[in-house]
C-alpha cells in the first residue's frame, strides 16, 4: 500500500516564473525507504519541502500530494501543522543551524513534544532519555541543557533522530542528513538511520547525493536531474544496471571519487562519498 503518493508535482518561482521541479510523480510504500539522489540544484530538497509545504513563500507548487489518502495541498494551515512533526518529520542537513542558537537544545525538543502530546516536563524527559541513549548520546540531561554551538554536527544530527524516535512519525524525510558531517560521524549517523528503520519500521524519504549511503539505506531510488525525474527503480536494480545515461554518469563519477578516496585512505573509507 502506498503511504504517500506524489503526482505531477510542479514547483516554480512565483516572481521569475522559473520552473524548478517539473511533473514529478512517485510513490512511497508503507515501510520502505525511498532515496532521492541527484546533484545539488536538481530539486531534491525542494521536493522534500514541498511535501511538508515548507518551501519559501516566493515558490509556488501545484500537483497532488496524497498522504494516507488525504491530499495535503488541500488542507488548511492548521491541519497541515498538526501533521508536521507528528506524522511527517523532517531531518535537516545541518544540525548546527537547525536549532535555535539562542536557546538550549532541550527547549526545542520540549516545545515540540508539548505541542504534539499532552506530556508534562518529567514525562518528556523520561521519553527523551532512552531515545537519546539509544542513538549513542551519553548524558542526555547534560545535552538537553547545551546550546547548539556547544555540540558537534554529528551529535545534533543524532538529537534530531532521537526526536524522531520519540515522535514516532509515519514518514521521516531526511534532507541530506549526512552531507555536512565528517567520515566518522557520517558512519555513526548512517548506522543510526539503519537502526531507526529497523526499530520503527517507518517509511522514509532519504535525500542525498551520496550513493554509498543510499545503497546501504534505500529500497528504492529516484534519480533527479534539473527538476525532472530521470530514473526510478529498486536500489539493487539501479546499482547493477542503470538504464539512464545520467544515472550511470553519477555512479561512475561517484565510484571514481570513491576509489581515489580509498586509495588515499589506504582502503579505510567506510562510507564512500
Amino acid at each position: 500500500m502506498n503511504l504517500l503518493e506524489v503526482e505531477k508535482l510542479r514547483i516554480w518561482d512565483g516572481h521569475s516564473g522559473n520552473v524548478l521541479v517539473e511533473n514529478s510523480t512517485f510513490q512511497l510504500k508503507q515501510g520502505s525507504c525511498l532515496a532521492i539522489v541527484g546533484e545539488s540544484g536538481s530539486g531534491k530538497s525542494l521536493t522534500c519541502r514541498a511535501i511538508l509545504r515548507l518551501n519559501n513563500n516566493a515558490l509556488r507548487q501545484s500537483g497532488e500530494i496524497r498522504f494516507q489518502g488525504v491530499d495535503l495541498s488541500l488542507l488548511d494551515e492548521r491541519e497541515m501543522r498538526r501533521r508536521r512533526g507528528k506524522q511527517l518529520y523532517m531531518i535537516l542537513q545541518n544540525g548546527m543551524r537547525a536549532f535555535d542558537p539562542t536557546n538550549v537544545i532541550g527547549v526545542h525538543l520540549r516545545e515540540t513534544l508539548v505541542h504534539h502530546y499532552d506530556w508534562n516536563a518529567s514525562e518528556i524527559t523520561e521519553k527523551l532519555k532512552p531515545a537519546m541513549l539509544s542513538v549513542g548520546l551519553q548524558d542526555p540531561i547534560g545535552i538537553l541543557n547545551k546550546y547548539p554551538h556547544q555540540l558537534s554536527g554529528g551529535m545534533l544530527q543524532r538529537i534530531m533522530i532521537a526526536l524522531a524516535i520519540v515522535l514516532e512519525p509515519d514518514i521521516i524525510l531526511a534532507d541530506e542528513p549526512t552531507t555536512a558531517l565528517d567520515t566518522v560521524s557520517k558512519f555513526e549517523v548512517v548506522e543510526q538511520f539503519i537502526r531507526l528503520r529497523e526499530r520503527m519500521g517507518g517509511s522514509m524519504i532519504f535525500v542525498s547525493h551520496e550513493l554509498g549511503v543510499v545503497r546501504k539505506l534505500a529500497d528504492e531510488v529516484l534519480v533527479m536531474k534539473s527538476g525532472s525525474i530521470v530514473e526510478l527503480g529498486t536500489t539493487a536494480d539501479l546499482f547493477s544496471n542503470a538504464r539512464h545515461e545520467y544515472t550511470r554518469y553519477l555512479m561512475s563519477s561517484q565510484r571514481m571519487l570513491n576509489d581515489r578516496f580509498q586509495q588515499l585512505m589506504g582502503g579505510a573509507g567506510i562510507v564512500g562519498r
Binding site: 519541502r49 511538508l52 515548507l54 518529520y89 523532517m90 535537516l92 536549532f99 526545542h108 515540540t112
Partner: peptide, 9 residues
C-alpha cells in the same frame, strides 16, 4: 524551517 517542520505554531 526545522521549527516549522516540527509543527510548531
Amino acid at each position: 524551517l526545522f521549527g516549522r517542520a516540527c509543527g510548531l505554531p
